[in-house]
Design a protein around this nucleic acid. Structure first.
Lengths: 256, 256
DNA sequence: GCCTATTTTCGGCATATCCGAAACTTAACG
DNA sequence: CGTTAAGTTTCGGATATGCCGAAAATAGGC
């Protein structure tokens, strides 16, 4: 009894449309033939799709090169607004953390079983990373993501793990159900989650969930180079700062 | 000989998909029946579409209410990256303008014949406005938009005006071809464009294009309440500051 | 200026979209 | 707690339409 239809099922044309969109996302810009091959459709079909996408304003064409248009940004900003309350509640606390640590702050929510960055602030010592507003990553690979998982209902965690799996992105990524269960238990006990090079070989992070009346709204994390995030600073100073910040955020959310 | 198919033509299913997406954008969240009525399709069709959109991850459902997902933000951030060079080149200059004026700065580009905000910075005195990253408005109603039009090839302007028209959004909006021609001529002469309550009843703005080797890359504008933007400050101080900033941006772009 | 690679047009078939009605679920009210 | 109404989901069938393959047109390279 699959609620949501699998990768197949549903309207085929729409799936093709978004397959093209996603290919354009990956490649930044692509030619017609290249797209047709990547999506595995006839050239003529790709042609019709691209013409339609351009006509609807979702794709721009420049000398035979197609790319996604800013209409996605418009819709994206709209979608983000659903989290406006959370973002605004978190902002001052995250700024405070930046002042105190100068590291990088991430605000993450769960959507469709994935972690999505909705806001990030980079401190002076912040390293450039591969995440930005809208970027999606597996929940089980992130400090904030694991924090969220730890406070989601068990059946939801089951559902997520069974559909998304536990893919390894580094050598240290959690890949088994048992590991995950233990980790989530630990996180619930101590209130914070650690990400020790589980999403990137040189990055460590500390994360906490934002919980209100038993419901998880998202999670925040402090991330930085593994070289610098060590010892007491990593294991106790940052967690303490983070817990203070989350407390502030939760209070703000509670009073609207 | 229509190059791009009109509002009809092209793949019908895809058009329906985006009609739903755009309705969801307008309404923030909507029920199935409501959507079916708005898009003028059968309930069962709306159901299939929504199921597919959710399966693809572009729509989220919460207790019968559907809304756009953050996937759009991901694609949008990607699309914005095409303008990264421009945005980074403009950033310091815009920050400088904020320091000097404390007003609101907008960075706008042209896409599909419309003005699209790609960046904005709000100074201390900045008023809340109805624009954000990704927001689209008619070119002929904005200071930055008119600046861009003034430096686009004539045939492109023709094309834009004939497909988009010159709709009035306030009493002072330019609505005729002659008015527009004159205005663009004036803008080319003096280097800056004024928006005197043409896009909003209480807003004035000054804008300039960013031009490199004859090609327009976008435009920047200083916007503020009509009450405060008056006299010399509006007609000469702000334009001078703006021209200095644009010069800085163009230089930065020229040296990559 | 020819030749190659890519894009665009065209016609037909098979398929998948869309609809209408009926079954089912959820919510509201007495 | 039973009844009704509103909304959602399932189902089967007719027709429209999306998809392909090949041919025509265009653009680019040498």
């Amino acid at each position: 009894m699959p609620q949501t239809p699998g990768p197949d099922g549903g309207i085929k044309t729409t799936r093709t449309t978004f397959a093209i969109v996603e290919t354009l996302h990956e490649r930044e810009a692509a030619r017609l033939t290249e797209l047709a091959a990547a999506v595995d459709i006839a050239n003529s079909t790709a042609h019709e799709h691209l013409e339609t996408l351009e006509g609807c304003g979702y794709v721009v064409e420049d000398e035979g090169l197609f790319s996604l248009s800013l209409k996605f940004l418009d819709h994206g900003t709209r979608a983000k607004r659903r989290y406006q309350g959370l973002i605004e509640a978190a902002k001052p606390a995250l700024e405070g953390l930046i002042d105190e640590t100068n590291e990088t702050m991430n605000l993450v929510v769960e959507e469709h079983g994935e972690a999505v960055y909705v806001d990030r602030m980079v401190g002076e010592r912040g390293v450039p990373t591969n995440s930005w507003a809208g970027k999606r990553k597996p929940l089980h690979t992130l400090a904030a993501g694991k924090s969220i998982l730890a406070h989601l209902p068990d059946e939801r965690v089951d559902e997520i793990v069974s559909t998304r799996g536990l893919a390894a992105v580094t050598e240290r990524t959690i890949t088994t159900r048992e590991q995950l269960e233990d980790e989530l238990e630990t996180i619930r006990d101590r209130g914070v989650a650690f990400n020790d090079r589980e999403s990137h070989d040189r990055i460590r992070a500390v994360g906490t969930p934002i919980v209100l009346e038993g419901e998880v709204f998202g999670g925040i994390a402090i991330a930085g180079p593994a070289k610098r995030l060590t010892g007491e600073y990593f294991r106790s100073e940052l967690p303490d700062l983070l817990l203070g910040a989350v407390n502030e955020i939760e209070l703000k959310l509670a009073y609207h």
